[in-house]
């Protein structure tokens, strides 16, 4: 098949599928039901961990997890979740939450939407758990 046909066909196909996926309502981000849900989602990636404490963000898109190996964050990525330990992470306060820089090529800058009080508490807890 000539490229001048294949190229536009691929672009058109991708556009059509993505548009329809969105219009059919499949763009909603995951929202944690409660702290227990966040704990289960953490253990899904770190089975056997002892989860000592879970702090759920007010918007239910992320949770801070405390384990004997240090703090971790589990957050919504599309309709699913990702859980990362905060080993060697750098935390910075932003106007609308926190920015966490991780030594992870697939999750270098994690931006968490937290209100001012939440952000302060999370930053404090991360520092507390890490030390």
């Amino acid at each position: 098949m000539p490229l001048y046909i294949l190229g536009p066909a691929v672009v058109l196909g991708i556009g059509l599928i993505v548009l329809l996926t969105h219009l059919l309502g499949f763009s909603r981000a995951y929202a944690f039901v409660d702290e227990e849900d966040a704990r289960v989602r953490w253990l899904r990636e770190w089975p056997g961990d002892e989860v000592r404490e879970v702090v759920l963000a007010a918007d239910r898109r992320a949770a801070l997890v405390s384990t004997p190996s240090g703090p971790g964050v589990v957050w919504a990525l599309g309709a699913d979740t990702v859980a990362k330990r905060l080993t060697r992470a750098e935390v910075r306060r932003l106007a609308d939450g926190l920015r966490i820089d991780l030594p992870d090529f697939t999750a270098r800058h994690l931006r968490l939407r937290l209100d001012r009080t939440e952000a302060a508490a999370w930053a404090h807890r991360i520092a507390g758990i890490s030390t």
């Binding site: 599928i17 993505v18 996926t21 763009s27 599309g78 699913d80």
Partner: peptide, 16 residues
């Protein structure tokens, strides 16, 4: 099954 818009877009772009 399940679909998610950004996940599907990523898969399709990787296919291309």
């Amino acid at each position: 099954g399940r679909y998610e818009t950004r996940d599907a877009l990523t898969s399709l772009v990787m296919g291309a």
